[in-house]
Design a protein around this nucleic acid. Structure first.
Ligand SMILES: [Zn+2]
Ligand SMILES: [Zn+2]
Length: 462
DNA sequence: ATCAACGTAAGG
DNA sequence: CCTTACGTTGAT
C-alpha cells in the first residue's frame, strides 16, 4: 500500500524534499476566492461588475504581482482557487453545476434549495480520518486519499518552488481547460500537471469525483437515500452509504442535539477536536496548533487521543486492523490508509491543507452541514422566524447548506486566502465555502439548479 | 474585486 | 469555555 502511495508522491516529486514553505506562506492574498462574496454585493456599486471576470484578468497578473512567485503559481495558475471562485461568472457556472453533479446527492436539495437558512444540517461525520481507498465509482479507482494529499502537496511545493515561469505554465496548461473539464478547483495537481484531467483518484471526468470521493472517503455521506428516489435504492447503495446513514440522531432534532451520546451510532464520533485538517498538517509532525489557524497533527486521528477512532495502530496502510472500519463507518471493502507522516513537507502553517474531520467542527460543522435530508434538521432553526430567509428576515441564517459541492468538500486547500489566513480571517476555505451562502450574500446570481443530480451524478457510483 | 481582520453566531 | 466559520467592515 504504502508503496503506491508513496510512489506517487515521489513522482510528483519534487516536492517533498524541501521546503515548502516558500511559497505557501501567507504572503499575500492570492486567490480570488469566494471569500467575501457578501461584501461585494453589498456594495451596490459594484454590482454590475460582471465581466469583472474578464477585467480581472488582470487579477491574474495581480497574482503575480503580489506575492511571490509561488503563490502566483498556486493560485492562479493552478486555477485551483480560481475555479471555485465566483468572480467570473463562467467558472461559477461550471463549478456549480458540477457541484451539483456531485450527484450523489440525490437528495433534493431542491428542497431546501435556497432556503439557505434552514438547510439541513446534520453532522456527517463518519469516517474520516484516514485515507481510504475504495473502489467506488465502479471505476474502482482507488481512492486513496493519501495519494491525493501527496499529490496536492507536491503540487503545491512544485509551484512554490518553481518560481519560474508559471506564466507559461499557467497559460499553457491548466487554464481553463481544467475548468471546462469540470474539474473542481482545488483539484489536485494531477489534472494540471501531466495528467490531464485525471483526478488523483484516477477517475476522469467528474468533478464530482473530487467531492464525492472526498466525501466518501471521509465519510460524509454522500447524500443519498432518502426521499429522493433518484437514487435507485436497489442498486447500490452508495458504497458508503451503508454505514453512513443519516443518523437520525443528529439531525433529528434540530439544532442541538447534543448528540453526543447518540454518537454511538456510528461509532465514530469521538471528537477530539482536532483542529485543523489539512493535508499538510498531517505530515508536519511538528507543528500542530490548536486554534483557528493552527493545526493539530493528528488530522487523521490516527493517533487519536482517546482512541476513539482507531486504536491507535500505528500502521498506516492497512485496512482494518488498526482501523476498525466499523468504527469509521467504512464499508467493508474500503481500505483505510493512514497517512505517513513525515515526509517532509512542511507548510508553514499547518493550517493549510486541512481536512475536515469530524472531530473538529470543521467539517462537521455538523450542525449545519450535510445531512441533507435525512434529517429534519434542516430547517431547523431556531430562528426561522418568518420566512426564513428571504423575506423578512434580515438575518439569514448562517448555516451552510451542506449539500453543495463546496460544502461537501472535506479538505481545505491550504493555499487559498482563507486557509492561509485562517487565524485572523476566520473563514472557511474558499473551496469549501457554501454556494448557498455565497449566493445569499450576493443575492442574486444565477442559481443553478441546485443540485439535482443529473444522470451524471450517479455515475460515480456505477 | 479582493484581501485581511474583527466581532460574533453557533455547535459542542 | 472552545472551536469553526459567517457576516461585516475597511483597506487595497
Ligand atoms: Zn483553502
Ligand atoms: Zn453549501
Amino acid at each position: 500500500m504504502f508503496d503506491l502511495t508513496r510512489s506517487i508522491c515521489v513522482e510528483n516529486g519534487l516536492t517533498r524534499s524541501s521546503g515548502i514553505e516558500n511559497g505557501l506562506t501567507r504572503s499575500s492574498g492570492i486567490e480570488n476566492g469566494l471569500t467575501r462574496s457578501s461584501g461585494i454585493e453589498n456594495s451596490l456599486t459594484r454590482s454590475s461588475g460582471i465581466e469583472n471576470g474578464l477585467t480581472r484578468s488582470s487579477g491574474i497578473e495581480n497574482g503575480l504581482t503580489r506575492s511571490s512567485g509561488i503563490e502566483n503559481g498556486l493560485t492562479r495558475s493552478s486555477g485551483i482557487e480560481n475555479g471555485l471562485t465566483r468572480s467570473s461568472g463562467i467558472e461559477n457556472s461550471l463549478t456549480r453545476s458540477s457541484g451539483i453533479e456531485n450527484g450523489p446527492s440525490q437528495y433534493d436539495h431542491s428542497v431546501h434549495s435556497h432556503s439557505s437558512t434552514t438547510t439541513t444540517n446534520g453532522h456527517n461525520h463518519h469516517g474520516q480520518c484516514c485515507a481510504v481507498t475504495m473502489d467506488g465509482c465502479g471505476l474502482t479507482p482507488v481512492l486513496d486519499y493519501t495519494a491525493e494529499m501527496e499529490r496536492y502537496r507536491s503540487f503545491a511545493n512544485f509551484y512554490a518552488k518553481t518560481n519560474v515561469n508559471m506564466n507559461a505554465v499557467n497559460s499553457m496548461n491548466f487554464p481553463q481547460s481544467a475548468k471546462l473539464a469540470r474539474i473542481t478547483p482545488p483539484m489536485f495537481p494531477g489534472g494540471r500537471l501531466g495528467v490531464a484531467g485525471v483526478t488523483p483518484w484516477g477517475c476522469h471526468d467528474n468533478v464530482n469525483m473530487n467531492i464525492n470521493a472526498a466525501a466518501m472517503l471521509w465519510g460524509r455521506k454522500p447524500p443519498v437515500h432518502q426521499a429522493t428516489p433518484l437514487a435507485p435504492p436497489t442498486t447500490h447503495p452508495p458504497p458508503l452509504a451503508t454505514h453512513m446513514q443519516p443518523h437520525p440522531h443528529r439531525t433529528g432534532g434540530e439544532g442541538k442535539q447534543h448528540g453526543g451520546h447518540a454518537s454511538s451510532s456510528q461509532g465514530q464520533e469521538t471528537h477530539h477536536h482536532h483542529g485543523n485538517n489539512n493535508f499538510l498538517s498531517g505530515y508536519t509532525t511538528t507543528d500542530h496548533m490548536t486554534k483557528q489557524g493552527h493545526t493539530h497533527q493528528d488530522m487523521l486521528s490516527l493517533s487519536d487521543r482517546n482512541s476513539s477512532c482507531n486504536g491507535g495502530g500505528g500502521a498506516n496502510g492497512v485496512n482494518m486492523p488498526n482501523f476498525p472500519a466499523g468504527m469509521l463507518g467504512l464499508p467493508p471493502g474500503v481500505i483505510v490508509m493512514a497517512m505517513g507522516s513525515h515526509n517532509g513537507v512542511n507548510i508553514p502553517d499547518s493550517s493549510h491543507f486541512q481536512m475536515a474531520t469530524n472531530h473538529n467542527q470543521m467539517l462537521s460543522d455538523c450542525h449545519h452541514a450535510n445531512q441533507t435530508n435525512s434529517s429534519p434538521c434542516p430547517s431547523t432553526s431556531p430562528g426561522m422566524t418568518s420566512g426564513g430567509q428571504g423575506s423578512g428576515a434580515s438575518k439569514r441564517k448562517r448555516k451552510r447548506c451542506g449539500v453543495c459541492a463546496p460544502c461537501r468538500r472535506l479538505i481545505n486547500c491550504g493555499v487559498c486566502s482563507a486557509c492561509r489566513n485562517r487565524k485572523t480571517g476566520h473563514q472557511i476555505c474558499k473551496f469549501r465555502k457554501c454556494d448557498e451562502l455565497k449566493k445569499k450574500a450576493g443575492s442574486i446570481q444565477l442559481e443553478s439548479p441546485p443540485s439535482v443530480p443529473s444522470g451524471e451524478a450517479f455515475r460515480w457510483f456505477f
